[in-house]
């Protein structure tokens, strides 16, 4: 500082001050960048979640085979009931429902009668069947990951299983392999492999790596943990 020309300290002080300001500003910019990055990451996560839900909705069965007959039955029953009651109220029975006969039968039939029990049982069984049909079930297509809400991509479940079996069989020493895809929420791939070696060593780990690697290339929306059950040759 002392070696410089007169006025240098002032200049240097100014430089130091400017440096400090620049440093502060750059720290501020870095902070803003970090905040923007976090916001972008959050937005990306949301987009992925939206896309995953949309894709799952696309591939989910609508149960039209159950829903359409049920809707038809509700429409016909409700419509016929309404027409019959309204026509009787205005004094011109439509005769869609045999009300008198039904009423006479119901007046004579006790709740404990086998026919009444059978009808009640049939209704309960039908209700149970409909409730079972309303459950999500196992989707035929496994959804792939992605952030584009207008793209629903997936892999046919049976084909996915075959691809994983193939990956397991490509490991030298594996004679047979089967794969089960389990769990709708916490997915798990269970590989059952049979080795032709008496002492397979780390073959289970190699199979696990091969299957996990194949899964990695398939980019599923819900990554699955891979478990291997290895049977060795015994003779």
């Amino acid at each position: 500082m002392g070696n410089g020309p007169p006025g240098a300290p002032v200049v240097q002080a100014g430089v130091v001050m400017i440096d400090t300001l620049v440093t502060r500003r750059s720290v501020g910019t870095a902070g803003t960048t970090a905040t923007t990055g976090r916001a972008e990451a959050r937005e990306l996560r949301r987009a992925r979640r939206r896309a995953r839900r949309g894709a799952a909705e696309e591939f989910r069965s609508s149960r039209a085979a159950v829903g359409i007959p049920t809707a038809l039955a509700v429409t016909v029953t409700g419509g016929a009931g309404a027409v019959e009651v309204l026509s009787r109220l205005i004094g011109h029975p439509a005769g869609l429902v045999p009300v008198e006969r039904l009423s006479a039968v119901l007046r004579q039939t006790p709740w404990g009668d086998p026919r009444a029990l059978a009808v009640a049982g049939a209704l309960a069984a039908l209700g149970l069947a409909l409730l079972a049909a309303a459950l999500p079930g196992r989707p035929r297509v496994v959804v792939m990951d992605g952030a584009d809400p207008s793209l629903a991509a997936g892999i046919a479940r049976a084909d996915l299983r075959r691809a994983l079996v193939r990956a397991a069989l490509e490991v030298p020493g594996v004679a047979r392999a089967g794969v089960r895809l389990r769990g709708p929420f916490r997915r798990r791939v269970t590989v059952r492999a049979t080795s032709r070696y008496r002492n397979p060593g780390n073959l289970a780990e190699l199979v696990r790596i091969a299957v996990a690697c194949r899964l990695d290339h398939l980019d599923l929306a819900r990554p699955a943990a891979v478990g291997v059950r290895l049977r060795r040759r015994r003779d």
Binding site: S62, R63, V66, G67, T70, L126, G127, L130, A134
Partner: peptide, 17 residues
């Protein structure tokens, strides 16, 4: 449409039960 199927099923199950 599944929830409606479930609701009809629950109503029938209730009646039958």
């Amino acid at each position: 449409m599944r929830p409606v199927i479930g609701m009809v099923g629950a109503a029938l199950l209730g009646l039958g039960g």
